[in-house]
Every structure is written in structure tokens, then in C-alpha cells.
């Protein structure tokens, strides 16, 4: 089980990294979403894996899984939605404004030309 979760984190990270290194905004955003999953699962797994012991207090039950990482990841999930939405908006705005959805600036002018003489 541990092997499955750890490898899932690894696969998500690898896929996310590859997509983040692409040149257009949409795959980069998807890559960041994958990385978000990886990070959230990674954080969640820091409470170690327990099956059938949700942190809902019951009479007579003494074993619960670690609730703290869950609480932290819960807010992280919601915040990552906000982050994704902002990044999508920025990417969209850039595309609509310039008709170009490249992540990097496309070479146009020489950097040195924009400097004012000292």
C-alpha cells in the first residue's frame, strides 16, 4: 500500500514537472495542477496511512488517523483552486491580449536597447 501511494506521488510529480516545462500556458497550468495533487497527497501522507480510522470521535474507539495533515491539506485544496483560477485568468488575459499563449516571452527586441544611457 505504501508503495502504491509513494509511487503515485512520484508519477504525479514526474507528469507535473514534464508538463510545467512545456511552452504553452494550458499544459503548464495542467502540470501545476498535477504538482498540486502530488504535494497535497504528499502532505496528507505525512500523517501516515491508516485504513478505516477516520478522525471522527466515536465512543469506544481509540485508534484514529492523524487529523492535523488532513486539516492542513483541506485548506490547501481550496487555496489551490484559487491559485489555479488566478493563473488561468492570467494565461487567458495574456492570450487574449497578444494572441499568443507562449509561456516565455518571444524574442522581439534586444535587451540592451531598452536601457537608458547612464
Amino acid at each position: 500500500m505504501e508503495l502504491l501511494v509513494a509511487s503515485a506521488i512520484g508519477v504525479l510529480t514526474a507528469g507535473g514537472l514534464y508538463l510545467v516545462l512545456r511552452l504553452r500556458t494550458f499544459p503548464v497550468i495542467l502540470g501545476m495542477s498535477l504538482l498540486t495533487y502530488a504535494v497535497n497527497v504528499f502532505l496528507f501522507a505525512s500523517g501516515r496511512l491508516t485504513i478505516g480510522a477516520a478522525p471522527i470521535l466515536r465512543d469506544g474507539v481509540t485508534t484514529y488517523t492523524d487529523p492535523l495533515p488532513q486539516a492542513l491539506v483541506l485548506t490547501a485544496i481550496v487555496i489551490s483552486f484559487g491559485m489555479t483560477a488566478v493563473v488561468v485568468m492570467i494565461g487567458l488575459g495574456a492570450f487574449l491580449g497578444s494572441d499568443d499563449d507562449h509561456v516565455d516571452d518571444q524574442p522581439q527586441t534586444d535587451v540592451t536597447n531598452s536601457e537608458e544611457g547612464a
Binding site: E2, A6, G10, V11, T13, A14, G15, L17, A38
Partner: peptide, 11 residues
């Protein structure tokens, strides 16, 4: 390499 690193760490 990034995937292997996180995999190793998590495992």
C-alpha cells in the same frame, strides 16, 4: 528524476 526523488522521500 523529480518523480523518483519524491517517490523515494514519500516511501
Amino acid at each position: 528524476f523529480g518523480g523518483l526523488a519524491t517517490f523515494g522521500l514519500a516511501y
